[in-house]
Simulated scan of single mutants.
Amino acid sequence: MTTTTAAQPGSETAVEQAEQEATEAEQLLTALEERVREGDDEITPDQLSNARELGRFAKLRADAARRKAERTTAKAAEQERAAHLDQATALAAPGGPLDADALAITYATARAAVRAFITASETYNTTTGQGARLLAAAGVPDSTFGPTPEPGTAARWGTDRFRLADGSTYYPTGTGLRLAVLLDDLNTEFHDIPTGAFHPPFVRTPISDQATRGRDGHPQLHVLAAEQAGGAK
């Protein structure tokens, strides 16, 4: 990849001025020579010599201005390159956005939070069954195939769904479905979480397929997180 660095302010102006002076000196010499050809006796050899030397000197100055501009541009390009290298290095510094260990910490935190959510969700689902069994023990009939219970009364449907007299209804929903809602919400919030170049969007690719690719990716957060936790999975 080629990077073009603009000339420093003033360098182009200096070159243009020097080139203009060289052009004017050449034009002056040409005009004097033409006057001699036309028979102008007032033009002396010294005038031609001076004009010729002036033109040569002006060309040298133009060359010097160009070289100086090139050196200035090259120096600026080198400074810009060094600055980019420093910026890239800073990105990978500890605590920066490319700190894999810091990212692994957030991975471990997210994993613990999802684990806690799964546990709470499964507890919720299991407890609905306990509630339904308690209502059954209290003599509340199973209304799965019977008449619709009257509002304001406790009711149950089978062994895992029930309603209390205050209208509160409880029934289990698959924890995987709840996770799907969570991930879909995040996917919407982040405008389609990418799975990688040339791969289908996150929500259209099986989790198992993505996990296989992710475990071979870099950095391997699951490995770093386990190492930070002393080998705990």
Results as ranks from 00 to 15, higher is better:
Met1Tyr: 15
Thr2His: 12
Thr5Gly: 03
Ala6His: 11
Gln8Asp: 08
Ser11Val: 05
Glu16Phe: 12
Gln17Trp: 12
Gln20Phe: 14
Ala25Gly: 02
Leu28Tyr: 11
Glu34Lys: 11
Glu34Thr: 14
Arg35Gln: 04
Val36Gly: 00
Arg37Ser: 14
Glu38Trp: 13
Gly39Gln: 02
Asp40Met: 02
Asp41Val: 09
Glu42Ser: 14
Glu42Met: 13
Glu42Ile: 15
Ile43Asn: 05
Ser49Ala: 14
Arg52Phe: 04
Arg56Val: 06
Lys75Trp: 09
Glu78Gln: 07
Gln79Ser: 07
Glu80Asp: 08
Ala82Asp: 05
Asp86Lys: 06
Leu91Phe: 10
Leu91Ala: 06
Leu91His: 09
Pro94Cys: 01
Asp99Phe: 12
Ile105Pro: 00
Ala108Ser: 06
Thr109Pro: 04
Ala113Trp: 14
Arg115Ile: 15
Phe117Leu: 12
Ser121Trp: 09
Thr123His: 07
Thr123Phe: 11
Tyr124Met: 03
Thr126Ser: 10
Thr128Glu: 00
Gly129Phe: 07
Gln130Met: 14
Ala132Gly: 06
Leu135Trp: 01
Gly139Gln: 07
Val140Met: 00
Pro141Asp: 11
Thr144Cys: 08
Pro151His: 03
Pro151Asn: 01
Gly152Leu: 03
Thr153Glu: 05
Arg161Ser: 13
Arg163His: 02
Ala165Cys: 01
Ser168Asn: 10
Thr169Glu: 12
Pro172Arg: 00
Pro172Ala: 02
Thr173Ile: 15
Gly176Lys: 05
Leu177His: 12
Arg178Asp: 01
Val181Leu: 09
Leu183Cys: 07
Asn187Gly: 07
Asn187Glu: 04
His191Phe: 09
Phe202His: 03
Val203Arg: 14
Arg204Trp: 14
Arg215Cys: 06
Gly217Asp: 05
His218Asp: 10
Gln220Tyr: 09
Leu224Gln: 05
Ala232Asn: 06
